[in-house]
Amino acid sequence: MEHTSRLERIIRIVLVALILIFFLFPIFWIFLMSFQTNEDILRIPPSPFFTPTISNYQALITGKLVSAAGTLDIPFMRNLWNSVLLSSVSVVIALILGVPAAYAFARFKFRLGEDIAFTLLSFRFAPPLLVLLPLSLYFQEIGLTDTYAGLIWVYQLIALPLILWIVRGYFEDISPDIEYAYRIGGHSWWRTFTRIAVPLAGPGIAAAGLLAFIFCWNNFVFALILASADKQPVTVGSLAFVTASGIQYGQIAAAIVLSVTPTLAIALYAQRYLVEGLSLGAVKG
């Protein structure tokens, strides 16, 4: 154990505190905003003292937005459900397709292998707007516009390359000898894949799945163009708070709190898989 002086400890605490404030303060502020009325929020100077209200959450959950101009219907809960459905189904499909593909790219050298892998990665380079116009035309033709299936398909552009490239790296880190040892023990290729390769790449698969989920969750333009109100996720749904009678900051804050919660919960849950370094000490040298 390294000896640390008192001064060093104090500096460390101060720095950690600064970093935490930098990253957590906006979340904290939005959390406070979600319990304020628009008037409280727009007061100058801003004050942390206010009478909390749950009217913002009420409006979101009941779907009735009461403003000066009258009552407005917002399908926020439906948007939230859409987000959950689109993101999770997209990630599950991307995992089913991407993990075996990542394994293939990691283990087998085949013709055009690198080119295919790179092409898949290049989907991440292209600005989404570039593909949206032709895509929306095609989707109209084959009837995929405004369907969950269509959106989930497009979301593969986001999720699949991410999973493929992250998981591939984890598979490459597993010594092939470990897999060979299992096969020599009499197990088939498929069993080796499911019992050895996938568990060992587990932390990587969890990390990639989580990242892909967050990327899908945060997507905006695909759903904006390709889906109508009842299929749209929260990112697009939040546009409804920019109303004719002004921007509903309170409701936006409440919507952010609600829509961040699922990703935050998943991140906290997956954290232990991300940290677990399974491969330690198994292979010498």
């Binding site: 060979y180 040892a181 096969r183 020599i184 088939s188 060992l200 198994a282 292979v283 010498k284």
Partner: peptide
């Protein structure tokens, strides 16, 4: 014959134990 059908035992130089 794939490795699993050859009915032999092998010890690897780097041990190749299953870490999990």
């Amino acid at each position: 014959a794939p490795p699993e059908a050859r009915g032999l035992g092998m010890a690897f130089q780097n041990f190749a134990l299953f870490p999990h």
